[in-house]
Design a binder for these strands. Structure first.
Lengths: 183, 183
DNA sequence: TTGATCATGTAAGGGGTTACATGATTTA
DNA sequence: TAAATCATGTAACCCCTTACATGATCAA
């Protein structure tokens, strides 16, 4: 949907594909997942289209790295994305598909067990988000509202994840009450 | 991710691809979006794999329709899906990607405008969900907790959408407060 | 010297979208 | 008779994942 845009945004400073992957696994892991096998072709494509330039980094130590930086054209493209309307994209939540078909199992026992497992999965996500929150708090002074702009915006997205998961857990509990009352 | 599974679940009663599309646009439109150009090949594939059987419906009036029904094998496959753990799948929310890069615009004016537009989009989604809710209430007696099992489960998924969007709006408001305070 | 990490990729395949092609029937 | 709706599909093209291939360096 917009991995290329996001890569443009992450290339505020020049970086290699490998480093970008580490950002995805570190700072952005609550927000976006991306595989190296997707990142490398995406970077090449962005370069072919003139949004990035690259050069081999002299391998003083370790293997050679290809370092990408935004071109002026790339920055224009990024600004255009940031000036556009929010990308809402359709949500396809597999667990809701399963739940919607759950009448097929007869009775509500399976539905209740499913919702309990789901709540536990959300709880696990929440724990991870809160670990990220705690680590950022430890690392960065001024947390969270006096952070520098890039980290402040990242924190807004972290809060989005936390409120989303909390709401999902509330919904699970409400649903469990309704399901057990039907039994 | 699981359109084929969902199709198996929707084929509780035999139906054509066109009818299934209408279910997606009607009852399930809050839950899943699917195009005919994806549905038809998916049905063919499910038939090739032995999960569905089909026959041409005699076209008493209108063009010929191909009607699919679940085989015993298809029902087993469906039950297996419903017995599996909830499919959590990674979330890739384009608007969070944009927000995370928004420091590039300098200042917070663009961020505030973006969050306001986002909140309005969520409000629009909420209105649609509530229209669905109201229409179901009008059509179905016993709404919502004394509904037959299939509609009850569909209502659980509708509630999931409503709580999700409400939480998103709360997050937007919280974020707007934080952003304007920084100005 | 063996395995972990650094670093870059290709290949195959699933899932999804938009645009296009075809033709019958119903309604204005 | 022209347009909307019914009905089924194909083609081209993204996006993404898993598995595989390759080779260098570093630490145990």
């Amino acid at each position: 949907m917009s991995l290329p845009h996001l890569l443009l945004g992450m290339l505020d400073a020049p970086a290699s594909g490998y480093e970008l992957k580490q950002m995805f696994d570190g700072t952005l892991r609550h927000l976006w997942a991306a595989e190296l096998s997707q990142i490398y072709p995406a970077l090449k494509r962005l370069e072919d289209d003139g949004y990035l330039s690259s050069r081999e980094s002299p391998p003083a130590k370790g293997p050679a790295r290809r370092v990408y930086r935004r071109t002026a054209r790339g920055t224009r493209r990024l600004r255009q994305w940031l000036g556009a309307s929010p990308e809402m994209g359709p949500l396809r939540l597999g667990y809701l598909g399963q739940l919607c078909c759950m009448a097929e199992t007869g009775g509500c026992e399976r539905t209740a067990a499913f919702l309990e497992e789901l709540r536990d999965l959300f709880r696990g996500q929440l724990v991870k988000y809160e670990q990220v929150d705690a680590e950022w708090f430890r690392l960065h002074p001024g947390y969270p509202d006096a952070l520098p702009p890039d980290l402040f915006h990242a924190h807004l997205t972290l809060r989005a994840g936390i409120t989303r998961v909390e709401a999902a857990m509330t919904w699970c509990d409400e649903s469990l009450r309704r399901v057990t009352k039907r039994t």
